[in-house]
Write a protein that binds this DNA or RNA. Structure first.
Lengths: 253, 253
DNA sequence: GAGTGGTCTAGACCACCCT
DNA sequence: GGGTGGTCTAGACCACTCC
């Protein structure tokens, strides 16, 4: 029959649009520059606004664009390398790590956290809420869980303001023996989104950490990183110093 | 004035829909069970199909659902814990790690990879394409780059079939001194998507690794993991053995 | 061919930011 | 108030899978 089936896979419009815009961002725009609004862009490319938005959403997911309601769409800077690896970090809150404590309560943790800690179901744990800031931007919201058993020397009468520092101080006095970590994709809950200056549902990288001492889990944390602006770095050798976008590091084989 | 402004923040429909569906998945469905089709679901909830799809997309992003064109929407099992940490892995390809080599060429790497390796711009490197399989499913597509300088003992006359094993064998003979790693969110390119059994643009976790020997970068890799089905684990203590979804580990403070 | 999810359209209104 | 992105609608057609 000899049916030549070249071009038999029509590329979706939004996909083609995305590559066109991606190339344009490289060649015709500077970081921080604002793009034309969505209605104009859609008209210029001859597509519906929803189709254009599909392309913009992907580019935002990949960290190429930043969109803010009421303001506009701007070209995003390269992602920040954020160290979450072992070594330098040591105990959470140690070192000058640009974390800000937002709140601290002693409450019963959800079942999944209790499983992480290996504590009983209904046991209260110290719960510290913190925000990580880099270059003036919030990059992560975290909940740090510390069972009372891990900080036996903690005074009983603590003002809310003194609570978190005291727990962290006691924690740092222990010897850190090891760390566990997991990363997965999630979407920002309303409270995290607010602290990350994003809308609810924004894509985030959820980092779950366990800190060991004496063969037991002394603390655990769940950190929610902005997926659009952050590249998480692990490893003893320190953060990458790469100035390229991840797309550039991938090619067909 | 005393204007009570309760409920002044109307939740988007798709967001409310998402939580309703999420709860229903926990209580009324089993893993692997197929949901009603999108048109029926939309009608049942009294919303447009596009609105329902927005909710389904988020749930798929969070690993709760799996959708396949022409088939339907099913309830996804909990994400697989995939170890990408140091230690056990050692050199890429060492150990019984369920990687399958798909191809191998010697070609000039893109500029970003050359920067990662610290090699010259136009230098050819061994490029090995591999796929990682777990529980019968492809979970990652990888490109492993090895400069010829790292494998000086490599024979010159290699058949395509013998190329990749020979490069890996030479690599494993070196002493691995350290590893660097970074994780960021991306969307699957067409070629990766095909090997991951997903559509182009599907969300992926891109892991960029550098392997050191003799104080230099001996190899580098870019691995593309399915974000919907994988939870990446790091750490010396081995993979987490958590059976909960990440949503369950997060709560308001 | 019937049924599924994926793409696309052309509109509308809303929430938010700025001036 | 005017402009931006965010949400929502009610349709249509396409690509794919399975019977």
């Amino acid at each position: 029959m000899g049916t030549t089936q070249l071009e038999s896979v029509p590329e979706p419009k939004y996909w083609h649009l995305k590559t066109v815009l991606n190339d344009a961002l490289d060649s015709e725009f500077e970081v921080g520059e604002i793009l034309p609004n969505e209605r104009d862009l859609a008209a210029r490319f001859g597509v519906a606004r929803a189709t254009l938005r599909q392309a913009l959403e992907q580019l935002e997911l990949e960290g190429r664009l930043q969109r803010r309601r009421g303001v506009g769409t701007t070209v995003a800077p390269p992602r920040m390398g954020v160290s979450v690896g072992p070594s330098a970090n040591a105990w959470p809150g140690a070192g000058r790590d640009s974390w800000e404590t937002v709140g601290c309560v002693e409450a019963v943790a959800p079942a999944a956290i209790a499983a992480l800690l290996g504590t009983g179901r209904d046991q209260a744990v110290h719960t510290i809420r913190r925000v990580r800031v880099m270059r003036g931007q919030p990059v992560a919201a975290e909940l740090l869980y510390v069972p009372p058993a891990s900080v036996p020397g903690l005074p009983g009468d603590l003002s809310p303001a003194a609570h978190a520092p005291a727990v962290l101080r006691e924690l740092h006095a222990l010897e850190l023996e090891g760390e566990d970590r997991a990363v997965e994709l999630g979407s920002a809950r309303a409270d995290d989104a607010k602290q990350l200056d994003r809308l609810p549902g924004a894509p985030v990288l959820v980092v779950t950490s366990r800190y060991y001492t004496g063969g037991r889990v002394a603390a655990a944390s769940v950190s929610t990183y902005r997926a659009d602006t952050c590249r998480l770095t692990f490893g003893d050798a320190g953060a990458f110093e790469v100035t390229h976008h991840q797309q550039d590091t991938r090619q067909a084989s």
